[in-house]
Design a protein around this nucleic acid. Structure first.
Length: 126
RNA sequence: GGAGUCGGCUCGGCAGUCGCUGUGUUUGCGGCUCGGUAACUCACUUGUGUGUUGCCGGGCGAUUCGCGGAGGAAAGUCCGGGCUCCAUAGGGCAGGGCGCCAGGUAACGCCUGGGGGGCGUGAGCCUACGGAAAGUGCAACAGAAAGGAAACCGCCCGACUGUUCUUCGGAAUGAUCGGGUAAGGGUGAAAAGGUGCGGUAAGAGCGCACCGCGCAGCUGGUAACAGUCUGCGGCGAUGGUAAACCCCGUCCGGAGCAAGACCAAAUAGGGAUCCAAUGGCGUGGCCCGCGCUGGAUCCGGGUAGGUCGCUUGAGGUGCAUGGUGACAUGCAUCCCAGAUGAAUGACUGUCCCAGACAGAACCCGGCUUAUCGGCCGACUCCACUU
RNA sequence: UGGGGUGUAGCCAAGCGGUAAGGCAGCGGGUUUUGAUCCCGUCACGCGGAGGUUCGAAUCCUCCCACCCCAG
């Protein structure tokens, strides 16, 4: 298995999995354009879920672009992340950012997540 | 060469690295799971159940190498179908769509060809374009009057009466009353053929000529309709509005893949009260009809998904034939997204004319809206050269 | 994705072919020593936008835009 794969086991699939994270979001990272919620899981890897609402990002093309960038960024950094279930929510005007700005924004947010988790002395590769 | 019209095609290219999804394939099963079968073990209600192992088949997960992987609008959801369930979608009322003619089509409000009207020098473009001689309604304000009319000012005639002039016959002018008149003024979006000549007290299709209009016929055309055609009608018979009601013709049953079908699991199939087989539900605005069935309220209890539908189709491409064309027919050939917390991408380099609008969700045919450019073909006008 | 609805002043809204009611808020004035109450006046280059029908459109028709609701 390649170390940068991104299969279904690395995603949140069912509705109740999302509900668990929303109900008990231990870590919160807020930004003007997006919000990250996370909760430790019992697996040997992090998992990702996306909430990109039509209300905040109107055009389907932009929603797809944002989802691809978040997924790819997560895929390349999954071994540097703690074992948590993460939900990334898009906020208004996230589609105004260019590809490069979106990537650098995501890098910063992952780093902040690692900081928050390591403060709780949970396993983190960084 | 410049300006323009119509139609068609296209929507960054290449290389590398890392991914996603569908499908086929390779390998390893010493991974998980389901079904069937055989042997053994244990239990007893003596032919069933439990557990272990072997074999066969299927599925999931991993792995190797291939192949396919957004659009012309995928959009808006404005129309038309297919498909599924409700009855095989049946009768009537109500309601709604469409509306020059002919054809194409599964069907359409779409397309093609033709006609009428409008725009443009032209190629061409635009066009909700049935009926107001069946009925009802509407037209504020203004205006005399807004529909089988009507006299406000004006014009003309008559009666009566006043004033002035007088050649005493009358003439001019004013008030009042009675009539004639739709030419002129003014109002309005709109006032009921136009121009000219005649005519008249003044006028008027009152008469005539030309133009326009209506009706009938003839000719051409499948038809809409057309005409250097013929005849009749003076044309106040017939104003406008039907994207007002309406009439005529024609079409439409309802819901939608969250339709619907199957598998598995969980819960429940319990209690109380009341009403009643001309009742209730399916069923949509209503009635008939058809099918199913006791129903309503309260208390109590409770939900977990998965598979199919799901892509081979009114399909694409090429050739031939018929047709002005939309299109049809025949033959050959190809398989071209099928996701489901939802794939079709990210990064790096490089080239150029520097990349617009924008993302499938059951599937097709249209319309409408958004849209930087690029390429090809046909045609028109203007200028110039030979 | 499918189905349904609503847009009128800063806010709540009536009007559904004939010059756009009303209330709250705002602004100006009056009453009052001042304030509240009360009274009077004022506020829509035009009814979400663009075309069309009509003499005339917020109203009728067509196409767009924005927002909201329902179905898991």
């Amino acid at each position: 298995m390649s170390e940068f794969a991104f299969r279904k086991s690395s995603r949140l699939l069912a509705g109740h999995e999302f509900q668990r994270v929303f109900a008990d979001a231990k870590y919160k990272i807020s930004h003007r354009h997006l919000l990250i919620l996370a909760r430790p899981n019992t697996l040997a890897r992090p998992r990702l879920g996306l909430v990109i609402g039509k209300k905040n990002i109107r055009l389907a093309v932009q929603r797809n672009r944002i989802k691809r960038h978040i997924r790819d960024s997560f895929r390349l950094r999954q071994h540097n992340l703690p074992h948590v279930d993460v939900i990334v929510l898009a906020r208004r005007e996230l589609d105004q950012l260019s590809d490069e700005k979106l990537q650098s924004l995501l890098d910063k947010q992952w780093a902040r997540l690692c900081q928050q988790v390591s403060r709780d002395r949970l396993p983190c590769a960084n």
